[in-house]
Design a protein around this nucleic acid. Sequence first.
RNA 1: CGCGGGGUGGAGCAGUCAGGCAGCUCGCGAGGCUCAUAACCUCGAGGUCGGUGGUUCAAAUCCACCCCCCGCAACCA
Length: 509
Amino acid sequence: MAESPIYFTTPIYYVNAEPHLGHTYTTVVADSLVRFWTARGRDAFFVTGTDEHGDKIAQAAEKAGVTPKAYADRISGIFRSTWEATGLQPGWFVRTTDPQHTAFVQKILHEIHARGDIYFGSYTGLYCTGCERFYQERELVNGVCPDHKTAPVEIAEENYFFRMGAYQERLLALIEAQPELISPDGYRREVLGLLREPIGDLCISRPKARLQWGIELPFDDRYVTYVWFDALLSYVSALHAAGRPELWEHAHHLIAKDILKPHAVFWPTMLMAAGLPMYQRLHVHGYWQMNQDKMSKSLGNVVRPLDMQARYGMDAFRYYLLREMSFGQDAEFSEAALVTRLNADLANGFGNLASRVLAMQQRYFQGVMQPRAPEGPDLPLREAFVTARRELDAHVSQLAIHRGLESVWRALDHANKYVTDTAPFSMAKDPAKKPRVGAILHELCETLRVTSQLLAPFLPETSARLIALLGLPSATLTELDLPWGTAFAEGHRTLAPEPLFPRIDVVPE
RNA sequence: CGCGGGGUGGAGCAGUCAGGCAGCUCGCGAGGCUCAUAACCUCGAGGUCGGUGGUUCAAAUCCACCCCCCGCAACCA
């Protein structure tokens, strides 16, 4: 392929919580984009995984009476099995406790240290002995620790620091020279704002006296590294583990806005210090806002992907997430809105079209495909799908997946209108018009086939089912990009319809 | 002047970067069709695109100022 490979990452998820809506959204986007580019003939790959070190995990494990490793194994396993069960297919699942990752982090730390960009210094802060952690001024409630209600003491601690500030000018110049590096543009401006102030250096260690659950510094065994040097490097280490190190220079990171700073400031300066190529793009999305009233009743305010899958089907859940959120903006999550989308777009718009077409094909021709004879409205129908494909590609390339889906649905609307306008169900009563009826249904079967292919990255299960109902091999979905009108050989048979998306008539509370 | 996001018919939103008849879903009213998942199609009511001023042949879109709402501010996507 002429086009370069493309490598997507989700954040690696912290194992202090089980998979929720936010994790699922980013992972669904990554999965869909990989399927999309793969379908366009591009070498596409995505990595997700779990971030397992640190204070909170050590504490949670202690509370649960297990070792940190055992605790992390359990939650990490839940992430992995959840993605597997929901059909999200990362090319690699990285864990920060993987020996390969640990070794990679130590190698990079060693190199940066040897180059003089990591130094030993003193850190002064407000420390709560109960929590065994430092507090920021603003985190305190009336000057005391919110947990222990005691005043923290100011202590100095010796630690290692990364000379992040030394790379500030280079980073600023980079972002100004490559406006597309961080998108949407609002987040780029936010980063430029951050860079107007001195960014300072970054504390990257914790003494083992306070924290053992981490990766030991290769140059001082009294310390472990803390958070970002560990987590961010997983984006690269995962590729080494997966045997695809060459993909690094094609990296596109998908993140939510809360971790913008680490990804837009810490990470690029770390890459510069490590002498690694810069990532291609940082794509920042917004939050799903919850309406507490609605969610708290049935779900305890947590949206679990497996629950959504069980209740509505994974494709409907995927569709809702992709269609409802404008990437970069916040969106509101509600099951009522999900049901509306499911009924209006999936059941009535798409599913019903498949039902009526396959039913007529069955009723009038026992499923046997009739020859085409394009005339009048047939050409505009095909054009509608050509346009849909062009718009879908343009929008998805810019991560405007919601607009891409909207384009496909415009074509589906056209197809439903085509059925009404050409009225094959009326003509079928006149034997002389049977050939035209067959030709119309042939065009409509093509719309279903093309729709399956266009939507396969976003609705993989449904697309596969529809291709099967059309009597086509599953390879059609991914490998055969056939010109319109050539997919169905003479004598081809389609199957009887079955609902792709049952309507949901009970609106959730 | 901390940073960012938002304010578009009854509800929820897209469209703003690359200015050109104001679009989608739901809801409401009327009609059509009967192949289909009580689905589909047509027509209609409903908006001075938060406000004011400016640029332009042309502004929801660009510029300036103002009003209101919401997040964030070192580890929840």
